[in-house]
Design a protein around this nucleic acid. Sequence first.
DNA 1: TCGGTATTTGGCTAAAATGCCAAGCGTTGA
DNA 2: TCAACGCTTGGCATTTTAGCCAAATACCGA
Lengths: 109, 109
Amino acid sequence: MTAKTLARYEARVRVVKAMAHPTRMFIVDELSRTGERCVCELTEMVGADISTVSKHLSLLKNAGIIQDDKRGNQVYYSLRVPCILDFFRCIESVVGCNGDGKTKCAACR
Amino acid sequence: MTAKTLARYEARVRVVKAMAHPTRMFIVDELSRTGERCVCELTEMVGADISTVSKHLSLLKNAGIIQDDKRGNQVYYSLRVPCILDFFRCIESVVGCNGDGKTKCAACR
DNA sequence: TCGGTATTTGGCTAAAATGCCAAGCGTTGA
DNA sequence: TCAACGCTTGGCATTTTAGCCAAATACCGA
């Protein structure tokens, strides 16, 4: 594996890792359905400490998946790249595809 | 977030986490292009200890992404779910989409 | 049966990820 | 001006992940 090839995989991994947590996945899913949410709303939905949620949001933002918009003393987050929505379809396909060749699986043709 | 909702995200996370490593992502990509590879072939391509690669393969297998086929004293691995291929397209879309509304991005419409 | 090859597993150390509390900061409204 | 609110950041303990070596296991050919 060349350095260049490795770099390409590392770029992908940054995005994938950002999604590799139940709370963060929930947040992205929630933002995809409601457009935007402030930190306190997400915190209540998630049920964790607000500092924890804030760090999850920061991580998603650094990965380029969400963006923030400060309004008053609140910060609203929303998806930065609509394409991230396809991500869930992809994952769900794998989750629901048991590979036996019989089960219906959207992505398995 | 209900227990049921959490469970759904955790199922997704298991798949996503399995892909969240450069070596494992490379392996899946390689298998998608060549059909199957034995452990020693992948080990040489990756350039890590064979035990390390073996553990990565075990992890991918447990996530339901790849399957193994023992033949002689070698073990050949291949993709178990073809739908995992869409995964790369999705990620690549996010990686290549800077969200400025100008850049071309397959998934961003 | 024995040595050699291919792979997995156990053990261990180092690094990264999580989550809470406490402290810091900017904004709003008295 | 100041107290309250919303959020972020620093610090710290705990858990998870990664990767190497060594040992164990499985199979092949002589």
